[in-house]
């Protein structure tokens, strides 16, 4: 299970497509408990990412992820820009200079993405944020990194992220615009946790496809 820079671009294209397909859904979730712009902002950001990825040739996987991060930071507009932007830039640092990536690199990318989001947002699990879906997935990847059945590890991680999204329905938002709703945020799933799950779903599906 490994990929070169062209393969990484394919994975990121799948992530961007997933975000664009779910633009209305994410905005709907955000209109219930936020500022009704998550889908629009993310779609703006990932459309710019696609343009950037197609405008040049890449050999360095770290540079690709860094480009994604910088593009999100400068085009998204909402809080998801600095958060996902920092995640991708950190991920890029984790694999800087590498022309191909293996499963350990994938885990390092996810781990650093999580660290980046924690650093930028100063949030922790249970506050109804991206972290509620991302951290459970990263924990599974790290705990089971030596498993030989990598597809099953990825499926488990994705399932943990999905459960994380469900969990956000039951808790009060402590960060972002939703925090002004207090208890009224209960019952709604977090848009950020959801977009993170969708991105992970698209990436994992593509990785599985590519590794046959």
């Amino acid at each position: 299970m490994s990929t070169d820079a062209a393969g990484l671009v394919k994975i990121l294209e799948a992530v961007a497509d997933k975000i664009n397909e779910n633009r209305e859904f994410l905005t709907e979730l955000d209109s219930a408990i936020g500022d009704a712009d998550h889908g629009i902002n993310m779609s703006k950001g990932f459309s710019a990412v696609l343009e950037k990825l197609h405008s040049q040739e890449f050999g360095d996987c770290g540079a690709i992820l860094k480009t994604v991060g910088m593009t999100l930071v400068s085009t998204v507009g909402g809080a998801s820009g600095p958060l996902y932007g920092t995640a991708f830039m950190r991920a890029g640092q984790a694999v800087a200079g590498k022309s191909s990536l293996n499963f350990d690199d994938f885990i390092a990318i996810m781990d650093q993405a999580l660290e980046g989001i924690k650093y930028r947002g100063k949030a922790q699990r249970g506050e109804k944020t991206i972290i509620d879906s991302l951290e459970p997935a990263v924990e599974i990847l790290k705990n089971e990194k030596d498993s030989t059945d990598r597809k099953s590890v990825m499926n488990k991680a994705l399932n943990a992220a999905k459960e994380g999204v469900e969990y956000t329905r039951s808790i009060i938002a402590k960060k972002g615009r939703a925090s002004y709703l207090g208890e009224r945020s209960i019952g709604h799933q977090d848009p950020g946790a959801t977009s993170c799950y969708l991105m992970l779903q698209a990436a994992i599906q593509k990785i599985k496809e590519m590794s046959g």
């Binding site: 712009d37 902002n41 930071v73 507009g77 820009g81």
Partner: peptide, 12 residues
């Protein structure tokens, strides 16, 4: 605001 005049902020 953002460069394309949406509500938001732009680090650049």
């Amino acid at each position: 605001g953002t460069r394309d005049r949406r509500l938001g902020t732009d680090p650049v």
